[in-house]
Design a protein around this nucleic acid. Structure first.
Lengths: 196, 196
DNA sequence: CAAGCTATTGAGTGTGCGACCAATAAGCAA
DNA sequence: TTGCTTATTGGTCGCACACTCAATAGCTTG
């Protein structure tokens, strides 16, 4: 009868189980950090033996990379929806800045910081990071290009403008783990977008 | 007679030994990363038993923090000398930019990235990072303030200008582990300094 | 209902880590 | 030279990790 002493096995469809593992790992990555993605930790999260995680991901590094990709691309979709049809570019960009400079974005900043550092040791993760960087850049560039087309923004080079925005965002996000909360207002204040 | 099978003990002055340990740890931190600062690794580096490192640093975390502080403050001194008497602020700032955007700075970028991430888990290190951030900010602010006093730069708020520079530098440095080397020239090109 | 496929478990291996401590010997002082 | 202080060693302990694999049991199919 005891639920913990003898647990009933739950046998799931492999695809579902795999997705479940990735989702759990992505959650851990966001809240606790990528190095907390261990066979034991994920197994505990899903109430499953560590060996099962190994079964789906023979090398943990692959799960780490997958988890990062999952979390990062989900966040990107939330930040700048993929198939924008509603709203103006200006409105979308404003939403982007509002979210990306808010406190709720701290976990994402931490994740990027985490992933960029860990990339030093994990080639598979590194590839994912590079891919996500490209995805974010392209999505933002597309938005800016759209705005330029509609006469809402002015810039000679939407790609460079996008990169500049992302660089500043990365620079601000670098302090997500150490910030004591006393940024000068001039830094905290959202920048006006401005041509190249 | 074999040097490795039975090593002659070398007994050093505690202060010297301690400094030696910190220097070795700082070197490892720069080249291999802060998580490679282990009792075994540092002991090997100095050809000494791991227990000795424990003797000087009962908690490894303290050594990690010390090593980071050592490396970071040494780099700051190399970047912007403490007691500037030679050269103009413009020249010093130019030197600063030249060095901080060069490839030789990659190890420093990696170290900052490393430290900022690890700060998430290591409070002692976190304090050091905050302190070094302040030191860098103040040193750069002093340089800018000097330049403003001499009429070489123009800005209403040297502190904000310094922070902006550092934020961009952090943003660029975030990619030290993943960069594939194909940055658009417009991003690579050193920015002109410009008033607030 | 029976049989087979395979998702899941349980148990074990080897590695590297920080921490701890009694024993040892280097160098200084008497 | 002798003796003392203490820097240094060698060994050990417990823990967490990834990875492996034979045994087990849930589900589906005939």
């Amino acid at each position: 009868m005891p639920s913990s002493v003898q647990r009933k096995r739950i046998r799931k469809d492999p695809a579902d189980r795999r997705a479940e593992i990735v989702a759990a790992a992505a959650g851990i990555a966001l809240t606790e950090g990528l190095e907390c993605i261990t066979l034991r930790r994920i197994g505990e999260e899903l109430d499953v033996r560590p060996g099962l995680i190994s079964h789906y991901f023979p090398a943990v590094e692959d799960l780490v990379a997958e988890a990062f990709g999952h979390a990062a691309s989900a966040e990107l979709d939330a930040l700048i929806p993929a198939g924008r049809t509603d709203g103006t570019p200006t409105r979308h960009l404003a939403r982007f800045f509002a979210h990306a400079t808010g406190q709720a974005y701290d976990n994402i900043s931490r994740l990027w910081l985490n992933a960029r550092h860990l990339s030093r040791y994990r080639p598979v993760l590194s590839d994912r990071v590079v891919a996500q960087e490209a995805a974010w850049r392209e999505r933002l560039e597309g938005l800016i290009r759209d705005g330029v087309g509609r006469g809402e923004f002015r810039t000679d080079d939407p790609l460079v403008a996008a990169i500049r925005i992302l660089v500043v965002l990365d620079g601000l996000g670098a302090h997500a783990n150490t910030d004591t909360g006393n940024r000068p207002p001039a830094i905290r204040r959202r920048r006006q977008h401005r041509g190249a």
